[in-house]
């Protein structure tokens, strides 16, 4: 992303000064978060850093105690995941939300099946052919290779299944796609497949929020990394200049954000 785009662009999705607590546990305090058009932002942090809470707020599952969400600069409120989906934010969950007994087009259109036009549609009739055609062309566009999309999803490999889940979110996520641990439980080769797919999603213009424990994957895919620790944002890193040691020390608190800024360039050009 060029310097010019960075200064002029409005974040597609942003959280401003968001806090959330569960009883006496502070899950998030005064978090700022932003995704710009056409970038992959990784959200990293140790267990309990607040990644999941932030994701749930962005995807409408949780409401923040304070702070605001902005889409394209305008404040938004999500009462449910449905609201977020309707606003154009899709989430790929860690435990796949696919229906393993259904085929690929049925999964891509799950809950949003196309109906036949006219009278047949009034009788709730599925337009199986249109869904199949559109599913195939969508997968082709994203370069997802599946021998036959008429296969039941549980006959696909783990990587293919994750690819179907990612493809579904891109298909419906007009503005942002959030991916929660998309490479967890995948073999090396299968992970590489999914990472390539995530990059193609970005190339297609859809910004991605990526949550992962796997730092090599994050460094490979992300344009920018936002580090959370104990519910606070402790820094932001550029994968091109930062090292994995820096990321780890920031995540674990071995290194303060201010030290790091001196070491690996500041917030201002960390997306350069």
């Amino acid at each position: 992303m060029t310097q010019e785009a960075q200064t002029s662009a409005v974040p597609v999705l942003a959280a401003s000064d968001v806090s959330k607590r569960f009883g006496s546990v502070v899950a998030l305090q005064h978090i700022d978060f932003e995704v710009y058009p056409g970038e992959i932002v990784a959200l990293i942090g140790d267990n309990g850093a607040g990644k999941s809470t932030l994701i749930k707020i962005l995807s409408g599952t949780l409401a923040p105690d304070s702070g605001t969400l902005l889409m394209n600069g305008k404040p938004v409120k999500f009462a449910s995941p449905r609201d977020a989906r309707e606003a154009g934010i899709e989430t790929v969950y860690q435990d796949l939300a696919l229906a393993p007994d259904l085929d690929v087009p049925a999964n891509l259109f799950l809950g949003r099946e196309l109906r036949r036009a006219g009278i047949l549609g009034m009788f709730d009739m599925l337009d199986v052919r249109a869904m199949r055609t559109r599913a195939q062309s969508h997968l082709d566009t994203l370069g997802v290779k599946i021998k036959s999309i008429d296969q039941r999803v549980d006959t696909l490999s783990g990587g293919q299944r994750q690819s179907v889940a990612v493809s579904r979110s891109v298909f419906w996520g007009r503005d942002v796609v959030i991916m929660d641990e998309p490479t967890a439980a995948l073999s090396v080769a299968q992970s590489a497949l999914v990472i390539e797919l995530i990059k193609r999603v970005r190339a297609g213009g859809t910004p991605v929020v990526l949550i992962s424990h796997n730092l090599p994957h994050v460094f490979e895919a992300a344009d920018r990394m936002i580090v959370l620790r104990h519910g606070s944002r402790v820094g932001s890193l550029d994968p091109k200049t930062a090292t994995m040691e820096q990321a780890v020390s920031l995540m674990t608190g071995a290194l303060a954000a201010t030290d790091l800024r001196a070491a690996a360039a500041g917030e201002a050009d960390d997306r350069g």
């Binding site: 449905r82 939300a97 229906a99 799950l110 809950g111 949003r112 099946e113 709730d124 009739m125 599925l126």
Partner: peptide, 27 residues
């Protein structure tokens, strides 16, 4: 017809396949 050709029929299968997934998919 209802079970094999309609959206609601498809949802019956989806619920049996993955209840939570069906819910998250907006069914």
């Amino acid at each position: 017809y209802l079970l094999h050709c309609t959206r609601r029929g498809r949802h019956v299968f989806a619920i049996g396949s993955n209840l939570e997934g069906a819910r998250r998919a907006g069914i």
